[in-house]
Structure formats: structure tokens, C-alpha cells
Amino acid sequence: MPTIKYCVVFIVIHFFITVEGFSQNKPLKVYEKNGIALNSYNFEGLQSFLNQKNDTLYVINFWATWCVPCVKELPYFEKLNQKYKNEKFKMILVSLDFPKMIESRVIPFIINKNLQAEIVVLNDPDANSWIEKVAKEWTGAIPATVIYRNDKRKFYEQSFTEEELETQIISFMN
């Protein structure tokens, strides 16, 4: 009998953990390889990452393994994520790699670069329908980054140095 009780408690706790935060979005697909699990979303699924109102500072970066300037700036994102992750801070790296590259390239890349920030895949080919929902001024070039906290929001169609990125992050903290 106590086993069942524990089971129920476990399931209830598990349920709350799963429902909490972003997990409410149902991914299109979960890619699993070498101990890494990556959720892929269409834009509808991704959208709530871009519109949280919970005092947390969000840094959302759009990148791809084939995008040289994106790969170059990722270590800065990773470093600043490590620095701020214990505060009200959440970084999400949105990979725009093609679906067929996720297992062959993206997951090995994550392992190789030891990326710890949360990574999701956006798989929604009709980009014209969603680019302006990320930011009106986005032309569609990557790298691109959104930083926001509640209603304050900024969009950057550019590459960052570590200092530039930290300066922008700090400007959202006060």
C-alpha cells in the first residue's frame, strides 16, 4: 500500500514539474541521441518562450551550426548563462538547423561545445509568417537575439562580443 502512495505522490510531483514553465508546449518532435534530448517546435510552440511575463530576464538567440558568426558568439552566450543562471534569468538558444541535421550535426555540436544553456529547435519553414512576430524589424538574417523582461524588449540583428552582450543583459536588470 505505501508503495502505491509513493507512486501517486511521485506522479503528482512529476506532473507539476512537467506542466511548470515551458513544458506546456508540446514539441513537434523530441530528438534523442547520446544522452541529449532536444525538443523541436513550430513557431506556435515556440511563441510562449518569447512572451513570458514573470519578471525573469529572457535571452533568446536564433542560431544554427552552419552560421559562422552564430557559432563564434555562442561561447559568450554560454559564459553569461553560467554567470547569471542562478538569478531570474533564462537563456534559450533556438537552433534553425534543418531537421535532417539535428541528430547528425546539432547534437554532436552541443556535446562537443559542452553547451549547458537550454537549446530548442525551431522547425517552421514558412518563415514569412513568423519572422515579424519575433520582431517587426527582423529581416531574417541570423544571428539574431531577443532580450526581454516583462514588457521591456529589445531585438538585435547582429553579432555580439561578450562585453556587448553583457552590457545589454545588464541594461535589463535595473
Binding site: P69, E132, W138, T139, A141, I142
Partner: peptide, 10 residues
């Protein structure tokens, strides 16, 4: 006019 994802011009 439409928009698409692409590689930024270097």
C-alpha cells in the same frame, strides 16, 4: 515583400 531566414551577408 516577404521575409525569410537566411545567412547574414559577410
Amino acid at each position: 515583400t516577404t521575409k525569410a531566414i537566411g545567412c547574414s551577408i559577410k
